[in-house]
Simulated assay, not measured.
Amino acid sequence: MMETDILVIGAGPAGSTAAKHAALAGVSVIVMDKKSEIGAPKRCAEGVSKEGLEKLGIKPSERWIAKEATGVRMVSPNGTAVNLTEDKVKLPEAGYILERKIFDKYMAMDAGRAGAKIMVKTLATGMRREDDQVVVTAESMGQELEIKTKIVIAADGPESRVGRWAGLKTALKPKIMESCAQFEMAGVQMAEPDCIEFHFGSVAPGGYAWIFPKGDDIANVGLGVLTTITDKSAYEHLLEFVENNPATKNAQPVELNIGGDPVGGLLKKKVTDNVLVTGDAAGMVNPLTGGGIISGMMGGRIAAQIAAQAVSDGDYSQKNLKIYEKLCEEELGESFKKYLKAKDYLLSLSDEELDTIAEAFQDSDFETINTAEMVRKLVKISPKALLKLGKLF
């Protein structure tokens, strides 16, 4: 039997960040991942904000940045485009499109350099309590093994199995789990190749479609839908989008990614005795954009700090770990509640209403892009905006 102070299950960005910061705090850490290659397959549009990386203390590297995006292009159902680019407005932040397969490995390497032991192709198969600790059973390279640990940080993705083993309610209702499909494509001809592009309306019921440029004529082209309001699969919607969009109709896919994205906000209960859940497993995904890399890493860092302190205290109880929930709420929860309201508003709009809003925005000169200004403009155009968003910002 192996022993460690903290066991992190899942070596995505959230898990690797948790492992890194726990190791830096001076405790022993193992991080395991079921895949033989960390970061593959990717399940993400690969966008992150510069501001987010800076907040996490991560210096950008050309090894894992495919493209710097200098603006946003929002497209309504009838093709009306609103371009918010650096040459027209002062953007509060610009973003990067990553190579996730490299970025995730880079983050895991950082955890290893900090002192964490990394175990690839290692699948957690069960968990039991033993005295005041936890024993996790796993299969690694075809062999059964057991790892005894004081604290488990579950970073094993949406509807976390590890969280369920610990008695947490990690199962999600279909109305808050978007089904996503994405191609990486070559031969994409974007109208604004330096902008990330969003398409709204019935093209992606319950979500939106995106085109994220990765340099040259390469882009991630995908969408997320709510299966509760469409009879078609996300893949079927994606095929239609690709066929009908001028930028992608002549492009060719070189990779297909399919997965679920939890967009219902933070799980209410994220800790129990000896166990914390973080990242996608804890619902740390922006409900409006579906982005979860930065927020998951923020959560992973908090989880590491609380877990390491609990090891130092010699107290791994739910009561001692509960501060994690409060800190996550302060860091992410309040903003997520606002994004949920904004998402509900967007879902209430018909294609025609979206077109009207886009046409009105197209004629606007924004000095800067901020949520409050956007909402003020929306309230003038759409009575629903006042009803659903007016008191939020």
Rank of each mutant, 00 (worst) to 15 (best):
T371P: 01
M284Y: 08
E46S: 00
I58W: 09
G26F: 01
L349F: 01
N257S: 15
A108P: 02
T272K: 08
Y324L: 07
G290C: 12
D280R: 13
E54A: 12
I6V: 15
F336G: 02
Y324Q: 09
N245I: 02
A303L: 14
A385M: 07
S364C: 01
D216G: 06
I38G: 05
E37I: 04
P158N: 12
V285S: 12
A116V: 01
S36P: 06
T272A: 05
H199L: 14
P253R: 08
E331C: 00
Q305N: 15
P41L: 03
D216A: 08
L168G: 06
T278F: 04
E62G: 07
V242E: 12
L98V: 00
S179Q: 06
P13C: 10
A154N: 08
E334Q: 08
L53D: 08
M1Y: 14
A281T: 15
T17P: 13
I153V: 09
F241H: 09
K88H: 06
E240R: 13
V152T: 01
F198M: 15
W210S: 12
S364E: 10
E243Q: 12
I369P: 07
Y96S: 04
I323Q: 14
K232T: 04
G201W: 11
L7E: 03
E373N: 05
A111Q: 00
R376N: 11
P193S: 10
A282M: 15
R73P: 01
V136Q: 03
K90C: 07
S140I: 01
E144M: 07
G201L: 11
A124Q: 04
